[in-house]
Every structure is written in structure tokens, then in C-alpha cells.
Design a protein around this nucleic acid. Structure first.
Lengths: 360, 360
DNA sequence: TGTTATTCCGAAAACGTTTTACTAAATCAT
DNA sequence: ATGATTTAGTAAAACGTTTTCGGAATAACA
């Protein structure tokens, strides 16, 4: 696609030409006629500084417009109060990845509430001096790192995980590292069981492939239906990436072209389901009367479609929150805390897109 | 909603108990039997170090697993290679804000390609020692700051914008600061003109309110239709926040309940349009035969709905990219670069949700 | 051979903090 | 009044860099 943009350049002179030197402890020290050490202690509320001195120093600091210098603090204390976020998904959708940005948003919120900032760890490919993930993390001095949705088989990821930087992984379990995962096994079990209960026996599965998340779901799908006595033929399982409506569209067409098409199709996520829905509607089939569909994720989108999408709503907020909490625990108490593996359950949203086809 | 989660705690001992001291220039210096200065220069490829010395030092640095220390570098050079991102939207949707996360994703990409990292500037409310935006930016020493989608009347934002930190604002123009804005005026003009050409005269507008973005659109909407000789009664304009499907649902119902309901409704964004669509469908009205709708933003969602949504696709990728480029220009050349105000045009996607109602 | 460039490297200061060890003064107990 | 303790503050080192100013050795030149 061609993009046009007009630019009108206003001929202002540059405005950033004043020498910038921020006020430092030293400035406060001379203003108050005390030592730098005293200023530092006063601002950090140490007990060995007199009350009136503290108040005076703080007042002067305020008046002078003092701001602490994160770099200097970090250099001295080995703490940055900064958390690295590593996220590289297969589709490279980055921040536009629906599920992830919900998780991250909640992670960010709790991290900030605890005084931490968030910085992205970017790939080796993009950087000028191309560092590995671990190099980047060491370089920035992150107090901890959260890893989500990446290709966990990437050796660079493994290197990072095995380092001595506190790590929490999301939706993937590493031995001896704490992780927060969505309960895909039970989620899929619930969904499959519900679909079975609605009378469906010919159930197809559009598989998101790639990660342990989708692998868990697929396994759970097979297992659940097998326990219920349903056989899934191989041609009922097709692959299509996360959030890829085009691929889901193709996959759906393939399924509908089978001699014996399924009565229900499961998609890797709600958005991909849209692609499937388009394919189905294009054939003038009705949802759910002629064919049923189900998504996954439980984004708001699912509730806004008509018919409302049957889906498993993942508790992305809770996942982000717990991940942040646990990571901060780890940071503040590196030797004390135990390694935990936390499973966050989702809930089935029955919606309206899976019909009851039990013959009466 | 009640959220359940199970946690199984694996009783591993803490693993982060090894003392971590990263290898420094000094370590390399003693290993190579040269001075620290020489090591620094060698690694930074200064011209006054011999070729073989450089190579040797680099080899040793590699072997020892050296990583530069961002904090120390920042302290010394007053450069952090880090850009602050300020983003607070009305709805507090944060990273889940569709349009913004597209812009940010693209911004992030170009920033990283130029060796910059990205850190969020968070609100005063969330932080423990609640800093203003500017304080936070100074504290972290951001080389530059990008501001998007915030409440630009917030005095804290103004304080930041007026500081001597290089700033680029997105979708809002400040005097004497460079900005990148989506062309909402022309976008809305195109959309309104198209709708008019399709024969619609009773056009309602669900107004996103709050920002200059939506204000520009509203103004352009009024202006365009007035120029075309169409009068918009006051009750055709109702307010509903960005991306709020529930509010859009309500707003739509209000519009449909009018004695003389509109033949076409515009929404502040594609997602909100979904809420409207639900309200319409609930009354068994067909889109676009009985009533037409249009969105804004041009997210992929719009193309995946059926009927495909008529919308204005904003060039979010380009906006992010330009914002990053311009900000980096400003950072690298603070006194030389001019202040620019860049307008990025969008394109009308006619979709299928606005019908032609011209009587033949 | 003596002078001047050129090449390569080092000493040391500085960036803004925090923290340890210490001192001087004030308070207390006896 | 003496010694012991507490209180309030300071000096200085250290964190890991970068950079300025030289300085010594070597090379080039007359």
C-alpha cells in the first residue's frame, strides 16, 4: 500500500540549546552548608540526621528543583528499579498482540505501583550493536525480567532464563524458574466438554502451533474428546497462526471442503475466529445453526460479535498482576523466595456460537 | 467477577544467591596489562589505539564476558539511549488501546533500530514516591520523550512539554514543539463526503469527546456537511468514549429512538462501532440496508466484520515511525533541527457498511 | 645527528550517588 | 567530675565509565 503524508515544516529555531545540568546533591550541600553525605541521608530519611536539618535540606532540595539521578543511584546500589520485558511472538505482532498487551498492561500497572519502571528488551537483530537478550539485560541492569510469548526454544532465551537475573516466565514453564501460566489444559477441557455436551461429534481444530500453550491445548483437546469416546480424524486438525484471520479463513475453507465437514470448529483465538466466520458466511452457512464455532482468549471482542462467540476467557489481568508480584518478590528477596509455578484458571464463556444439535 | 487460581509451590531453594559482579573495564585492563583508558578507547574504537592492541583487548573482553554498564555510561555521558513514552488515555485502556498500540509498536521498532530503548513514563498516582511526568523523565535521564493520547490539558503534561527535553507529541500540536498528527480533518471530510455522496442526509455522529483529535473530527464533520448543505440537528450528536462498546450501544439506542432516526451513524472508532452494530441488530434492522454505519481507525477488525466496515484507516505505522525518526533527529542534533509539524494522511476504506440510498 | 611529527598509551579527574568509618559534641549515669 | 553513651554530622572511598592532557617511544625529516 502506498502511504502519503504531507509535512509542513515550521521554521522555528531549535529550542534545546540551553546547557542542561540538573541540580545535584552537591548543590544542595553548598546551599545548606552541610556535607553531601548529610544531604543524601536527609533525603533518604536516615536516622542519624537531626529532624530540623532534614526538613531544611528537603525544603532547599525542593526549592532548587532537585531530582535524583537514576544512573548514579544504579551505579552505586546495583539497583535500577527497572524491569525488562521480553516479548517476541511468532507473528511479530508485538504490542498489537491482543492477549499479550492485556497481560502486559496489568503487569505494568502492578510493577509501577511498586515503584518499578518497565523497559523492553529488544531482539539482537534490531539493535545496532546487536546484543543478546542477556547482554541487553545486563547492560541495562534490570532488576528482573519477565518473559512472555517468545519462542522458548530460542537459545538466547534459554541463556537469559539460566542467568542469575530474577526471571518470571509467562505461559511457559522452565525447570527451577517461577512461572505464571494460563490453564490451557483445563480451559480446553471445559470447552471441549461443553461442545460435546451440545451434541457435537465432528469437531475440528484450528491449531495455533508453535508454542507450548497451543501444544497444551491441542493435547487437552485430543485427550478430552478421546475420554468422551470421540475420534478426531487427522484432517480435522489444521494449522493456522495466532490472530491470523487470513490463515484461519483458508483453514476453514479446507475444513468445509472435506467430504464430511465438521459441525464445530475451534480456533486458536477470538480474532482468528473472525476469519473463520467470514469463510463460513461466504458460503451462506449460518452460525450456529449450520455450523458452530468457538474461539479462545475471551477478549471483549468475543462478547461483541453476533452471535456472541463461545470462548474461554483467559484471566490476563490476573496473570500480569501475579507475574509482577512474584517477580518483585524475587527481586526483593533473592535468596529467600521459593520458585513457584502458578496456574491461573480461565472461565468458559458459552456465548451463542455453539449450537445444541442433540436430536430430540 | 471472581477469579480463581491455583498455585503449586515447588520447594526449590532460591537460586539467585550468587554474588553478582559483572566484569568491568578494570578486569579487562588487568588481564591485558593495559590501562582502563586504553580498554575503554579500544572498545569504542578510538583512533589512538594500535590495531593489534584493539583486537587483543576485544578478544579478552569477549572471553571474560564483558558487558558495558548503562548506568555508568549514562552518568558520564549524559546519554541514556533511552526514550520515555508517556501515554495515559481517558479510558485508561493503556496498552490495550488499539490505535495506540499500533502506533507504539511501530515507534518502538524504529527506535530500536536506531539503538534506543523504550521505557514508560508512568503517572504520579501509581508511583511510590509520586513524581510528576517531568520529574520521572529527569530522574531516568531520558534522551527524549514521546507523548501520545494523553489529556494534553494536564498541567503535568504541559510542564513536560515545556521542559528542555526533546519531545515529540502524537496527535496533538503544541506551539514550538514537533508533532506528528493523523489527518483527522481530511479523514473525516472524506468520510462525510462519501456518506453524502451515497445519498445520506440524516447523519448522526457519536462523538469520542475529550481530545483535540475527536474535536477536530467533529468540527470537520460539521463543516463538511454544512458545505454540502446538510444541517445536523443537535440530537444527532451524542457523546461516547473511545472503544467503549457499551456506551456506543446506549448512544445508538438513543439515536434510534428519535422521532426521525438517522440513516447513517458514525462512530469514534471501529471497535465502538461494534457496540452500535449490536444495538442495531437487536432491533432486527439490517446493515447497511436499513441503516448505515461507519467507524474510524481502520484496524484489521474493520475489514473482518461482515459487512466490512466503512472506515478511515489511519496510518498508525507511519505515524509511529515518523515520530521516532523525528525524535531521534532532535536528540542527535538538539540545536540544529527545526521544529516540524507533520500531518499523516489516512485513507478511506469504503467497506460495505454504508449503503447507497439515492432514489433512482 | 638533532629536530619535529606521529603513533600509541596512561594518569587522573569527573559524573552523582551511597555507605562505612570516624569524630566532635552533647547527654547521661555514677 | 569522670567516664560511658548517644546524637549529629563529615570525610572519603567506591560504583564503571569517558575524556582531557600529556608523555614516551618511534618514525620522518633536514
Amino acid at each position: 500500500m502506498m502511504y502519503i503524508y504531507r509535512a509542513k515544516t515550521i521554521k522555528f529555531k531549535g529550542i534545546y540549546d540551553m546547557a542542561k545540568r540538573n541540580v545535584s546533591l552537591k548543590d544542595i550541600a553548598v546551599a545548606c552548608e552541610v556535607s553531601i553525605a548529610t544531604v543524601s541521608k536527609a533525603l533518604n530519611d536516615h536516622s542519624d540526621i537531626g529532624q530540623e536539618t532534614k526538613e531544611h535540606i528537603r525544603a532547599v532540595a525542593d526549592k532548587l528543583g532537585y531530582h535524583p539521578n537514576a544512573a548514579a543511584q544504579a551505579l552505586k546500589t546495583n539497583r535500577t528499579n527497572n524491569i525488562g520485558v521480553l516479548f517476541v511472538d511468532e507473528a511479530n505482532s508485538g504490542l498489537t498482540h491482543d492477549y499479550f498487551n492485556h497481560v502486559l498492561n496489568s503487569f505494568k500497572k502492578t510493577a509501577e505501583e511498586n515503584g518499578f519502571d518497565i523497559t523492553f528488551i529488544n531482539g539482537g537483530k534490531a539493535r545496532i550493536n546487536n546484543m543478546s537478550y542477556l547482554s541487553h539485560a545486563i547492560y541495562r541492569g534490570f532488576d528482573g525480567v519477565v518473559i512472555a510469548c517468545v519462542d522458548f526454544s530460542d537459545p538466547e532465551v534459554e541463556e537469559l532464563v539460566k542467568s542469575n537475573i530474577p526471571v518470571v516466565t509467562i505461559d511457559h514453564i522452565f525447570y527451577n524458574r517461577t512461572s505464571v501460566v494460563s490453564d490451557n489444559v483445563n480451559g480446553m477441557r471445559e470447552l471441549a466438554t461443553y461442545i460435546f455436551a451440545q451434541g457435537h461429534r465432528k469437531v475440528a481444530y484450528v491449531h495455533g502451533a508453535g508454542s507450548s500453550v497451543t501444544q497444551n491445548r491441542l493435547t487437552s483437546f485430543y485427550k478430552t474428546l478421546q475420554e468422551l469416546g470421540v475420534e478426531i480424524p487427522d484432517e480435522y486438525v489444521v494449522v493456522s497462526p495466532y490472530r491470523d484471520t487470513d490463515a484461519a479463513y483458508e483453514a476453514t475453507n479446507k475444513l468445509l471442503d472435506l467430504k464430511e465437514p465438521p459441525t464445530c470448529i475451534l480456533y486458536p483465538d477470538d480474532f482468528a475466529a473472525l476469519g473463520g466466520i467470514n469463510a463460513i458466511r461466504q458460503r451462506n452457512l449460518r452460525i450456529p445453526e449450520d455450523i458452530s464455532v468457538a474461539g479462545y482468549d475471551g477478549l471483549e471482542l468475543a462478547r461483541r460479535l453476533s452471535p456472541r462467540l463461545t470462548t474461554v476467557v483467559q484471566n490476563s489481568e490476573k496473570i500480569g498482576e501475579i507475574a509482577a508480584t512474584k517477580l518483585i518478590d524475587l527481586i526483593n528477596n533473592p535468596k529467600g523466595t521459593l520458585v513457584e509455578q502458578i496456574v491461573v484458571e480461565g472461565t468458559l464463556d458459552k456465548g451463542e456460537s455453539v449450537s445444541n444439535i442433540i436430536k430430540i
